[in-house]
C-alpha cells in the first residue's frame, strides 16, 4: 500500500539526473538520484516540477519505469512536440541537472508480486512505461505468475525497451506487438488499431481471472477496457490508467 511509502504529507524532493538513454528518436529514459526516496511499487508514478527563474512553476505526472532500487527513480519520457515540460526533460536537462520530484503516488494502478493471479498488461504507446515496471518487478522477485503483455505501438521504430523485451519473453512471459501505422512486412496482421479479435486471441481468457492493467491514451484505454469487459472480464479486475495530451 502506498500509505506506508508516503509517510505524512507528500513533499517535494530534489532529484539529480544521473543517466540518460535513448529509447526512440523522441523518447528517453532518465535515471534520477533522489536522496531519501522511500521506495515504490510497480505502476506508481511521480510528479515532476520545474520552476523558472521568474518563479513560474509547472508540473507533470510520469510513471516510474523500473521497480524500486534504493534511491534511483527511472522515468521514460515521451517528448510531446509542443509540450512545456517533456522537451525540457528529454533534450535540455543535462546529466547532473536537477528537478523537483515528489512521490511515489497512486495506490490503485499497482501490481504486487505476492498476487497469485495471472497478469494481463495492455499498453498503448508510451503506456508501456508503468507496465514495464510490473514486468521487471516480476523478474526481480523471481515470480512465476504467467504474464502476457500486449503492446500496441505505431511502428517497430517506436517500441520502447525493444531489446530487453525480446529477452524477457521466456519463462511464463508472452509478448505480442500490435502495430497501428506501419507493420513489418512479415507481420500477417498488418497495421491497424487493436480490436476485439486481437484481445480475444491474445489476452488471457476471462475464465483465468487475470489481473488486467491497461495503460495508454484515453481513447485506447476506453476501447481496450470496454472490450475486455465485453469478453467477460470482471470490471473490478480491469485497472486502467489514461494519459492526456499535456506534455
Amino acid at each position: 500500500m502506498a500509505r506506508t511509502a508516503v509517510p505524512g504529507r507528500l513533499t517535494w524532493r530534489v532529484a539529480t539526473l544521473t543517466k540518460v538513454a535513448d529509447e526512440t528518436p523522441t523518447a528517453r529514459t532518465l535515471t534520477f538520484d533522489v536522496p531519501g526516496w522511500p521506495g515504490h511499487l510497480p505502476g506508481q508514478h511521480v510528479d515532476v516540477r520545474l520552476t523558472a527563474e521568474d518563479g513560474y512553476s509547472t508540473q507533470r505526472s510520469y510513471s516510474i519505469a523500473e521497480p524500486a532500487d534504493g534511491e534511483h527513480v527511472v522515468l521514460t519520457i515521451q517528448e510531446v512536440a509542443d509540450g512545456e515540460v517533456s522537451p525540457y526533460l528529454t533534450r535540455a536537462l543535462p546529466v547532473g541537472g536537477q528537478v523537483e520530484l515528489r512521490g511515489p503516488v497512486g495506490g490503485w494502478f499497482v501490481w504486487r508480486d505476492a498476487e497469485p493471479a495471472p497478469v494481463l498488461l495492455v499498453a498503448g504507446g508510451s503506456g508501456i512505461v508503468p507496465l514495464a515496471a510490473m514486468l521487471r518487478a516480476r523478474a526481480a522477485a523471481g515470480s512465476r505468475v504467467p504474464l502476457r503483455l500486449l503492446y500496441s505501438v505505431r511502428s517497430p521504430a517506436e517500441r520502447f525497451y525493444a531489446d530487453e523485451l525480446r529477452g524477457a519473453a521466456t519463462g511464463g512471459v508472452d509478448i505480442t506487438y500490435f502495430y497501428t501505422r506501419e507493420a513489418p512486412p512479415d507481420d500477417p496482421r498488418g497495421a491497424k488499431r487493436i480490436g476485439l479479435a486481437d484481445l480475444n486471441t491474445h489476452a488471457w481468457p476471462a475464465d483465468f481471472e487475470p489481473s488486467c492493467f491497461v495503460c495508454g491514451p484515453t481513447g485506447f484505454v476506453e476501447t481496450v477496457a470496454d472490450t475486455l469487459i465485453a469478453l467477460g472480464h470482471d470490471p473490478r479486475r480491469v485497472r486502467t490508467e489514461r494519459f492526456g495530451p499535456s506534455g
Binding site: A2, V6, R9, L10, H45, V46, D47, S61, R102, G103, V105, G106, G107, W108, F109, T218, V221, T240, E241, R242, F243, G244
Partner: peptide
C-alpha cells in the same frame, strides 16, 4: 479527460 490516477499527488 484523464483518470483519477492523476489526482494521486494532489490528494496525497
Amino acid at each position: 479527460y484523464v483518470d483519477g490516477n492523476v489526482l494521486a499527488g494532489p490528494l496525497a
